[in-house]
């Protein structure tokens, strides 16, 4: 783990109750990995399950945490990113409250303020969701 739950807010612009990553496990220029414990009180948990919306936001914030870590290391301020598009989303299962999910995001290309990523989420060893995402960084 390189950034703990106590410090994750230093990397991302989102604030409670809309924080959908706990820890940044590893990160480099290309990829980032996070974990999230699904809590019953999470605003995107419905009937004890982390929703599809929650899974997608978790991928977006895993990208944000990775980008935040790299910009922080270079001494730059944290920027806000917005999801511009999502493609080829597949959801195989929804995690339940009490589960821990691990998420991997890889940056495919970055052209000025537009970043294309692929993300996938695992729970109990299985891939439960994946998608491609276009993120727009507001400078």
């Amino acid at each position: 783990m390189i950034i703990s739950e106590e410090n994750i807010l230093s990397l991302i612009p989102q604030r409670p109750p809309f924080v959908m990553v706990d820890q940044l496990v590893s990160c480099d220029e290309i990829s980032s990995n996070t974990t999230l414990l699904i809590k019953e009180e999470n605003v995107l948990v419905f009937n004890g399950e982390f929703s599809e919306a929650g899974l997608i936001e978790n991928i977006a914030q895993t990208a944000a945490a990775g980008l935040g870590y790299m910009t922080q290391r270079s001494g730059q301020p944290i920027l806000t990113g917005y999801i511009a598009a999502i493609k080829n989303l597949e959801v195989f299962a929804l995690p339940e409250a009490g589960d821990v999910i691990t998420t991997n995001v890889s940056i495919e290309t970055q052209i000025f303020e537009v970043i294309l990523i692929t993300g996938s989420i695992r729970c109990k060893g299985e891939v439960i969701a994946k998608c491609e995402m276009k993120i727009f960084i507001k400078k």
Binding site: P13, Q14, R15, P16, P17, F18, V19, V43, L44, S51, E52, A53, G54, I56, E57, A60, T80, Y82, I83, I86
Partner: peptide
């Protein structure tokens, strides 16, 4: 409460909430 966290300076509807 979602709007307090997304984002503190300017409330914006999260894209994933549009999907929901």
């Amino acid at each position: 409460p979602i709007f307090k966290g997304h984002f503190p300076e300017q409330a914006v509807v999260p894209g994933v909430c549009m999907l929901q």
